[in-house]
Design a protein around this nucleic acid. Structure first.
Lengths: 343, 343
DNA sequence: TTGTAGGCGTTATCAT
DNA sequence: ATGATAACGCCTACAA
């Protein structure tokens, strides 16, 4: 009748079973040194046999390290999120970390973020645009000294690791592509100027134009905000221009898709009548008609790198964050939305 | 010189400050009754003043409830994920829960899931397709008696709450739309037959056809798997058919987008030469050319409902899960990819 | 209605 | 190299 007490097997059970102290078990589990091989073996066996799993909560409470990294989000939009998460989740899992996602609106107060951090004491945090430039959130993170890595951030901030591609170079590259195709009247739709990456992209475009001795028509530079509707507006302006450009470089795919739509409505054929270039290589870039020539950010790798960085900090408990930014390579993706200029 | 010990303010501090016992504080924090108003007020004030935030880990350890719900994912794909997360995160935040995301491949073992659950003792779990039909995961969840709600699941399973739309009805509705437009030769591209929703959609299509006295050409029913490439294959087969259909109903938007692409390559105008209907109303449905007529699943609401359900269980600690499925309304979204049949 | 005291499962400290 | 034992911060009988 002895019903086995349902409670989970604890570290004490393992210790007893292996004939050692809980301290020793703990040491072994945490990969510390100063443990004899035979004991290690015994413990490992016991763990296996009993199906023991340490309680995340007990460890966190006693050890002051939570094994949880926070993915802080502003508003979960667009599918770059899935790329980020895939990279993050895979890497975290391997490193024995868990990912907790939390939402923080644009008008979140310092108090709110701080209280969140207080109750969770994260092992690290990961921020993506646009929240990676939210001063309130950043301040709260810094105050608690939470190791933080930012993916594709705008302005730099304190001692945080930044992960990004060289947006300037990427935009430069795309512009050169257009120029090589013979285009001269090239228009550009900017992203949300709040983001540094948006600013870098315009700069890349402008530099390439200048370096190739091409004149930039100020009316060919349209302000967008990275969202579809802003792309529609910009495209309409551009295509109704008395002398319409022969190519449009939108600083993200969503706006490029908008250009495609407007062009289609205006009975313009892309790419015969108009070349269109995007940026980001979201899934939709391959779905639209015609598929977009674009720049791919290695989103997943970026997230993987972020997790790796955090894991490193977590393991080494090192106080020297070495905030050198990590720059990853972009890739140029040629599809069918761009082609040779023909008058 | 008295440097305030940096450690966080604890429940004991609050109790001291408010002149009551920790028990009382705990009670108040957890909204139990049997507390005098004045004490409650004093405690609330102390909490405010001290900026106290309970430690999630300590609560979890002592209270055997984690306040963490797990969003279990197979492979973070597509943008339905962002909708889910938005709903989930918002609702969870309001309810004071946190969302932890974890990845489980298709070949995850029972042992792995079990060990995950063991170390986190989730307050609840949420599953989306396709993992919501992963028998291994489901079994592990059931064994630990973790309250689980599944979004748009295939086959039913044990005592879990299911949240879904009436796929049959939705597909029926879309088919009727096509029929009302005068189409008779309507083709259908199925989804992954593993998913019950895919099967329900075919059924809806067939029933509508039958009910309207239309013949279903077996060659017009193409097997797809919900992914773009399968849509391409199906579309090619359909459009090369000696007598090609005047309308194609793809059981998700991704495949519908594929049809659009193939049609475009074949110099067919959509919708003049061919009507195309999708299902899901992903973001891409509005981006493609022409925008897709489709069915919208209230993804975000589904997630919200899921969180609400879990919160309810969490609060009431009720053992009666009442696994009645929650059926939410879909909506029919008319865009430009479908139009009247003209011979 | 309120307080006391004993866990919850680990890690950290300090001996040995 | 290994083991007691005291935290960690909170919840929850049990007592009052």
């Amino acid at each position: 009748m002895a019903t086995k007490k349902k409670s989970n097997v604890t570290i004490a059970d393992v210790a007893r079973f292996a004939g050692v102290s809980v301290t020793t078990v703990s040491r072994i589990l945490n990969g510390e040194k100063y443990v004899r091989e035979d004991k290690k073996k015994a413990v490992t066996a016991a763990v296996e046999k009993l199906g023991y799993r340490p309680s995340l909560y007990a460890r966190s409470l006693a050890g002051h390290r939570s094994y949880v990294i926070g993915l802080l989000l502003d508003d979960p939009q667009g599918d770059y999120l899935s790329g980020i998460q895939r990279g993050l989740l895979r890497a975290s899992k391997i490193g024995g970390l868990h990912v907790l996602v939390e939402l923080f609106d644009n008008d979140t107060t310092f108090e709110q973020v701080d209280s969140f951090l207080s109750s969770l004491s994260l092992s690290g945090a990961i921020l993506t645009p646009p929240i990676c430039d939210n001063q309130v959130v950043l301040a709260a993170l810094a105050k608690r000294k939470i190791p933080t890595v930012r993916i594709a951030p705008g302005r730099p901030f304190g001692e945080m690791t930044d992960i990004k591609i060289d947006n300037f170079k990427a935009a430069y590259r795309m512009t050169e592509h257009l120029i090589e195709l013979g285009h001269k009247d090239i228009a550009f739709i900017t992203g949300d100027a709040q983001h540094a990456d948006a600013r870098e992209r315009v700069q890349g475009f402008k530099s390439a134009m200048n370096d190739h001795g091409l004149r930039i028509n100020p009316e060919y530079i349209c302000e967008g905000t990275y969202v579809f509707s802003s792309g529609v507006a910009a495209a309409k302006r551009l295509l109704n221009h008395e002398k319409r450009p022969s190519a449009i470089f939108a600083s993200n795919d969503e706006m490029a898709a908008a250009v495609l739509m407007v062009a289609h409505e205006a009975d313009l054929n892309v790419p015969q009548d108009l070349s269109v270039a995007g940026f980001d290589d979201l899934a939709l870039a391959s779905f639209v008609t015609p598929p977009l020539t674009t720049i791919r950010q290695p989103i997943e790798e970026m997230a993987t790198a972020a997790a790796a960085r955090l894991l490193d900090i977590h393991l080494n408990r090192n106080g020297a964050p070495e905030p050198a930014p990590i720059i990853l390579d972009f890739s140029f993706v040629k599809r069918e939305s761009t082609t040779k200029f023909r008058p």
